[in-house]
Amino acid sequence: METIEGDAAAGLAGDRQFDRIIATAGVHLGQFPYSWVERTIPGGVIVARYDVWKASEYRPGVAWLVDPLSGSWASVVPEGERFRVRQVGPRRLWDAAEAAYRWWVERGEPPLSAWEWTITPDRQSVTLPPDSGR
């Protein structure tokens, strides 16, 4: 086994392909580097953590949802037993998150392994196939 350590954003010299790529930094949903796909052999595996929530180092306990494409964001602040939500931009991200959660629960809370992740040079999507058994 050979291990290569480096900054994936900077790329690697040559055109070698790998059977496994493990990313130790979080990747924002919709911004998965296609160059990683190009460097992975067919049937290979890419392990990466998707960042959807952003924690605030300046305001502990505050969570953020951010859509870099529309510029929309939402913050969620705990206030006792409740949470204060603030939404800015054309997309109502917290409303969408609540709707997505309800949809997921109604479908039996399918595990991550049931989802299909598609990444092409032009598009990225996450779908739950109709035949996922849920």
Rank of each mutant, 00 (worst) to 15 (best):
A114P: 02
E98D: 14
L112D: 12
W64K: 06
D15Q: 13
A99R: 03
V85K: 01
W104S: 10
V77Q: 03
R49T: 15
A10Y: 03
E106R: 12
E106H: 01
G14I: 04
W117T: 06
E79W: 10
S70C: 06
F32G: 05
A25Q: 08
V77M: 03
A9K: 08
W53R: 14
V105G: 07
L112V: 14
E79K: 13
V47F: 04
A63C: 05
W115Y: 15
I41C: 09
G108I: 08
D67E: 05
V45G: 04
I46C: 06
G43P: 00
F83Y: 13
E81N: 07
A97I: 03
D95W: 05
E116T: 13
L65N: 08
S35D: 13
G43K: 07
G108S: 01
P42M: 02
R16D: 11
A97Q: 09
E79A: 14
W103S: 12
Y34T: 06
G89R: 02
R92D: 14
A9S: 11
P110E: 07
A25T: 14
D51F: 04
Q17A: 12
V62L: 13
I21L: 12
A99N: 07
G89K: 06
V45T: 15
T24N: 13
R92Q: 12
R86F: 12
G108T: 10
V66R: 01
S56I: 11
A114G: 11
P111G: 11
S56N: 13
R59N: 14
